[in-house]
Computed example of a mutant assay.
Amino acid sequence: MFDLDSYLARIALPSRVTVDAEGLARLQWAHRLAIPFENLDVRLGRPIAIDSDSVFAKLVTAKRGGYCFEQNRLFLDALAAHGFAARPLLARVWLRASDVPPTTHTFSLVHIDGQDWIADAGFGGSYSPPMPLVDGAEATAPDGARFRLARDVQHGWMLLRNGHPGHTDGRSTGDGWEPQYSFTTDQVWDADLILGNHWTATAEDSRFRQANIVSIILPHGFASLTDRHYRRRVGQDETSATLSDPRVYRMRMSLMFGIDLTADETASLFAD
């Protein structure tokens, strides 16, 4: 049984949201503001479990973050607890891709009053608001970035972003409309999610095996810590620094991202 009250407390919402497009947007926004995106357990050599109980224990009870397979499992469970009709989709992330990328991202397809919407509580690279699944649909994020959905002959659908690269994890060039990820609405089964999660957590080519990646959405901006490189942008104000002291690294993880590391975890991550 999903503990909705504990989840709502974790994301600082005082009550359930309404089961409509406005409620969906409110729930996703609160989730992203409260729960950081991170791959630190991968880098610490720990397995990534994506069943509902394990994800809840990590992201809610232990107040950690996670990556898309964890984040959107939790979000789907929260949607179901509210009464939304939703199911997972898989996507190919095109940011900085040199070839056709694998289906290593998951998000949600939500059906509201006869209309399908996409909602994503687990994309660590930027913040895209929920959008109706309509060719040409556009939305503007609180940080000012614009998003557009377009039919794609080869890949079904493409989500494009046009916004300042400082409100991303650094993979954006900021050069006009960029493809963020492509997807189809094909049925996704648990086995598909397990396979995608396994590749993401264990494959040598996975970016999550190659760097410590943490990010969080801010009310009007974005903050990230990739290995020792810290970036924060709010409005027009941007801060960038390379952290040289593990004590500062640990403090930044706690104060900015809400991730409380032990001394041993800090030493292991900082040494990478």
Rank of each mutant, 00 (worst) to 15 (best):
N162W: 03
G122P: 02
I11K: 01
W157H: 09
L13P: 04
A30T: 00
G258A: 07
A211F: 04
R233V: 02
A139E: 10
H229D: 03
P129G: 12
F56S: 03
A49H: 13
A203H: 13
I213A: 11
D264I: 11
R92D: 05
R247I: 07
V153P: 07
G176A: 05
V188K: 10
L8D: 06
F56A: 03
W199C: 04
V188H: 13
A267C: 08
F37Y: 15
H229K: 01
Y67V: 00
W177V: 03
G221D: 02
R233T: 07
I216A: 06
Q180E: 15
R26T: 08
Q71F: 02
G163D: 08
A78V: 00
F123C: 02
G196I: 05
V188D: 11
N162R: 09
R171C: 11
G221M: 00
I216W: 07
S6H: 13
R26D: 05
T103E: 15
H229A: 02
I217G: 02
D169C: 11
E204H: 10
S172H: 14
I213C: 11
S182W: 12
L195E: 15
S108W: 03
L13W: 08
L8Y: 10
N72S: 04
P47Y: 12
M253W: 03
R233C: 05
T185E: 11
P101L: 00
A203E: 13
A241D: 02
L8K: 06
L193W: 14
R171I: 08
G176F: 06
K58V: 06
T61K: 15
P129E: 14
M253H: 11
D272C: 10
L159N: 09
H82I: 05
V100M: 13
I35E: 12
L261N: 05
T239D: 02
I50L: 07
S108Q: 10
V42H: 02
E178P: 06
Q210G: 01
H220N: 10
R151P: 09
Y127M: 01
L269V: 09
G136M: 13
A241L: 05
P14I: 02
H111S: 06
D264Q: 14
E22T: 13
A203W: 08
D135K: 09
Y67H: 00
R92Q: 14
R73L: 05
V55Y: 01
T173I: 07
L193R: 11
W117Y: 14
N72K: 01
G122M: 05
L4K: 07
L109T: 00
N162P: 04
V19E: 13
W189D: 15
R46W: 06
W94L: 12
L40K: 03
A119N: 03
Q115F: 04
S172V: 00
L261I: 07
T104M: 03
I50R: 06
A271N: 12
D53V: 09
R148D: 08
D260T: 15
D169W: 11
R171E: 14
I213G: 02
R250L: 01
V55E: 03
A12N: 12
V214H: 01
S128A: 15
R171Q: 14
F208W: 11
T18S: 13
D53Q: 13
T239Q: 01
A97K: 00
A57V: 07
